[in-house]
Design a protein around this nucleic acid. Structure first.
Length: 229
DNA sequence: GCGACAG
DNA sequence: ATCTTGTCGC
């Protein structure tokens, strides 16, 4: 996967400029793409300053995992609400450089355009790799919404200035809802549809659920299994 | 000034 | 995100 990659900085103000600037260039048009293969991305932090990134590759048809790829890297930017992509983005891009196969759609932990400057992690990654991305967040960052009913598949609009920027979906009964917003090359409605299609019996859509699960498993295997070697 | 604040 | 076991409830 070839990637340009000049949208990084360690300067806070420069980061804000990048977000405002590139948000204008987002293309939230899906254009009836064919989706055969989907990817899920998540990170865990085995030690301070070290991240373990996971990419799960699934066939969209049956949601079965075909392959998993991981990447370990130093963390070079602090966590700052609204600037998550400058912390996790570079690591995710390095992970994606290891990928050979074609992936049609990415599910990424975090927000897409449901962001103060309309440029969350999923939008940033989608801009760099030029592939459709959807932000899947477990909590709220930006936008107004009503709480969906405690019934599986009930959902409410996420809005900003009366415009839809995503959806809040009760993906599983008795679980907090998830926040879905388009990253790039996809619209809100299609994002919601794709996420719904990717949910089985759990709260999170399979690509992201598996990425999170394995990021925890690999963290243990790669960082504490030594005590018994 | 006060509250909110992805992972 | 992370430190961590059991436990209450659907």
């Amino acid at each position: 996967m070839d990637i340009p990659g000049v949208l990084w900085t360690k300067d806070r103000n420069e980061a804000l400029k990048i977000q405002r600037n590139f948000a204008k260039k987002l293309n939230l048009n899906f254009e009836n793409r064919k989706i055969d293969t989907v990817g899920g991305i998540d990170l865990s932090f085995p030690q301070k300053g070290i991240a373990l990134a996971i990419l799960t590759i699934l066939s969209f048809k049956d949601l079965k995992m075909k392959k998993i790829i991981y990447h370990i890297s130093k963390v070079e930017f602090p966590y700052i609400s609204g600037l998550l992509s400058f912390r996790e983005g570079p690591i995710i891009i390095d992970l994606l450089k290891k990928v050979d196969e074609e992936i049609d759609l990415f599910f990424i932990d975090g927000q897409g355009i449901a962001h103060p400057r309309s440029f969350g992690l999923a939008s940033h990654i989608g801009t760099l790799i030029k592939k459709p991305t959807i932000g899947i967040a477990k909590s709220h960052l930006y936008g107004k919404f009503n709480i969906p009913l405690n019934i599986k598949n009930d959902f409410k609009e996420l809005t900003s200035s009366d415009k839809i920027i995503g959806y809040v979906l009760r993906s599983k009964e008795n679980c907090n809802p998830i926040f879905i917003s388009p990253g790039n090359y996809i619209d809100s409605e299609t994002s919601l549809k794709m996420v719904k299609r990717s949910i089985t019996k759990y709260k999170l859509p399979e690509p992201t659920r598996l990425a999170h699960k394995y990021s925890q498993i690999y963290k243990k295997k790669l960082f504490i299994s030594k005590i018994n070697d």
